[in-house]
Structures are given as C-alpha cells and as structure tokens.
C-alpha cells in the first residue's frame, strides 16, 4: 500500500517536473559574464576555482566545517572493536601499495597546483592523499586510528583554522574573505595547501576511525 503510494507520487512528481522544466524560458540573470569579468581580480585562472575559493569562498569555508563536523560525529559516536584479526596480506599487494603511495602524494601535489588554472584543487588533492592512506591501511601497512592525539587533532583542524584565520584577518580590509587582488593568488594557495593536508587527514579519518582492526592511538 505504502509502496504503491510512494511510487505513484514519485512518478507523478517526475512527470510534473519534466513538463515544467521543458517549458522554462531563458534565465533572467546570467552570471557567466560577471565571473569572466572578475576572473583577473580573483587570483586564479580557472573559473570554477575562482567561484569556489573567491566569489563563493564562504560556502567552501562552511563546507569544510561540515566535513570536520562529520568526523567529530563519528568520533563522538564511538566504536567498539569487533574482530581484531586481519588475515595475512599478499606481499605483492603490499609492495604495490608501497610503490603507489608516494606516487599518489606526487599526484596530490600536482592536483593542488593545477587547480589554479584547470580542474583540480584542494579537495581533489586531499581525496588522493586520503586514498593512499586507505590503500596502505587495506594492505595491512597502516593501522586503523582510534581517538586522535593532539598532533593529529591539529592536522585535522589546521586547514580549517588557516582558512578561518585568513577570512577573519581580511576583515581589516573591510570584509570577510575580501582578498586584496594583488595577494589573492598567494592567499588562495595558502588556504588550499592547508586544506589539502587537513582534507586528506579528515577523509582518511572518516575511513580509518571507523576501521575495526587493532591499531594503537595515533
């Protein structure tokens, strides 16, 4: 009964929405020209990065807060050890992981640098870093994490703190996150570098704090 009602409502919704979207005329406002016009003053050359870290950088600041928050939620919920034993690992797999991890770090640095003028940036770089940590963990080379000690806590929140500090210091310039055009590029690079490390740790943490096997405190 519930199934039929929900599926029926979903189908009706799809039909109504498709019809409405099909009739839609052109939008009243086009932001593309103003993005293009202000790109030179944004400190980066890639329009998406300019929107993410300059025009709408405030969204990105809160987004990092959301990610940190998810990690806090996982830590707060707590986790119990189930079965600690991990089977023996294939040495070939471990060797490949050992080779891959440093290469992935290099890829992350490239992605961070490339973000200024082509698709890439801190999040992508952080994701690759996190993936390398997950890879090392899954091949048995790195233990799972428990409650973070002070160094890891700094690492997890450092990127967000740098971002927040830059945002607040720029209040002297007259506005939250109002970069002076001359220094916008350098400040964005600073923020992105901090974010890459913290995002890598947070994303890795989302996996490794949940991981079961017996690891020490980290």
């Amino acid at each position: 009964m519930k199934r039929i009602a929900v599926v029926g409502a979903a189908l009706a919704f799809i039909v109504a929405l498709l019809a409405a979207m099909g009739d839609l005329g052109p939008a009243a406002i086009d932001l593309r020209p103003s993005v293009a016009a202000n790109l030179a003053a944004s400190g980066v050359e890639h329009p998406v990065t300019a929107v993410l870290l300059n025009f709408r950088a405030y969204d990105t600041l809160l987004e990092i807060a959301v990610l940190l928050l998810a990690l806090l939620g996982i830590l707060a919920v707590g986790n119990q050890r189930e079965s600690g034993a991990v089977g023996p690992m294939d040495p070939l797999l471990q060797m490949l992981a050992r080779i891959a991890a440093p290469l992935m770090a290099i890829v992350a640095i490239y992605l961070l640098w490339a973000g200024a003028f082509r698709p890439g940036g801190a999040f992508q770089a952080g994701a690759v870093l996190a993936a390398s940590a997950v890879l090392l963990h899954l091949t048995g080379l790195m233990p799972g994490w428990r409650q973070p000690r002070v160094r890891l806590r700094w690492g997890l929140s450092g990127g967000f703190l740098v971002f927040l500090a830059v945002a607040a210091v720029l209040l002297i310039e007259g506005g939250l996150l109002r970069y002076p055009p001359a220094h916008a590029g350098a400040l964005i690079l600073l923020i992105e570098s901090g974010l890459t490390i913290s995002l890598g740790l947070i994303l890795a943490g989302l996996f490794l704090f949940l991981s079961d096997d017996d690891g020490g405190e980290s």
Binding site: R56, I64, V66, F123
Partner: peptide
C-alpha cells in the same frame, strides 16, 4: 556555467560528510 558547477562541488562534499 561555473557558478552551479562550484555549488555542486560544495554539495558533493556535504553529501560525502553526511
């Protein structure tokens, strides 16, 4: 249009967190 593309990137991160 780069603006919605950037919004989606933000949205994806939020979805990952959730």
């Amino acid at each position: 249009d780069p603006v919605p593309q950037a919004m989606v990137l933000t949205g994806i991160v939020v979805a990952v967190a959730a």
